[in-house]
Nucleic acid binder design. Sequence first.
DNA 1: CGAAACTGGTTTCATTTGTAACCATTGAAA
DNA 2: TTTCAATGGTTACAAATGAAACCAGTTTCG
Lengths: 142, 142
Amino acid sequence: MEILELESFLPYRLYRLADAVSREFSKIYKDRHGLTRPEWRTLSGLGQRGTMTATELGEQSAMHKTKVSRAVAELERRRWLTRTPDENDRRVEHLALTKAGLAAYSEMVPLAKAFERELLARLSAEERVAIVGGVAALEGAL
Amino acid sequence: MEILELESFLPYRLYRLADAVSREFSKIYKDRHGLTRPEWRTLSGLGQRGTMTATELGEQSAMHKTKVSRAVAELERRRWLTRTPDENDRRVEHLALTKAGLAAYSEMVPLAKAFERELLARLSAEERVAIVGGVAALEGAL
DNA sequence: CGAAACTGGTTTCATTTGTAACCATTGAAA
DNA sequence: TTTCAATGGTTACAAATGAAACCAGTTTCG
């Protein structure tokens, strides 16, 4: 009978790896500020781009619109972001971080960068090229 | 102010990639048999190894014991696996697939392999080496 | 022995998620 | 211009998850 070796099956390995990395990284936003992953991505997206609509946020950070909606609601509750209705289309809201939101963002950015740097630092130069290039290639293949 | 580019941030890219691949792959076990990921992993683990305890399953497939417990309960409900109490330690149960479980497993294995093959087929030989090697390297770094 | 401490596995409860239905508004078509 | 499809965003509900408490059974060690 034909057998599948789970440990070497790419979808499984990829998922397990991403899960482990993400779990480790989540400490930065979870332990410090009690953010969920969608909330972190929302904060991060707005910090990076300045202002975005919920739909744009969903596209940029690969989140379903319900996740975006809930994350935005929570960040608003914390007064980390504000909504500004669009002039022309009253369905649309432009989101932007408040001072408090920006403060949290700029506190976490260096930590995030350090995390990535230290992760990659455990690899050789060739391995770094391999993982980054390999991920890019697979992304492109989808 | 320092900015983080989410789109090129490795933890994010890795997670998004794994999520996309996993989502696509899940169709094989979800659409066909209505299995969840933990259930699929449990089936797969037992199909591969023949017999395992819940704890071993958790180690092999990187699942929390509550996930294993629930997945095993569901597969048992379907009569896809049976439990046999251990002779010496009455806390332990040895799990094994029934005929029906094995049938489902051997039906899905070729589909899983084909999925992986077709995914990798979209890459060049160098890219394949890169992704597989890169993933292995990062796994090792954790 | 007999009281911890530990381990395999299940259950409970709160939180997170996904799907689908929904509301309001806009754009296209008749 | 009225109707119908599409779009931005929220909500309701069911299912999946994680953490911690829990229930046997086992081991350790005074």
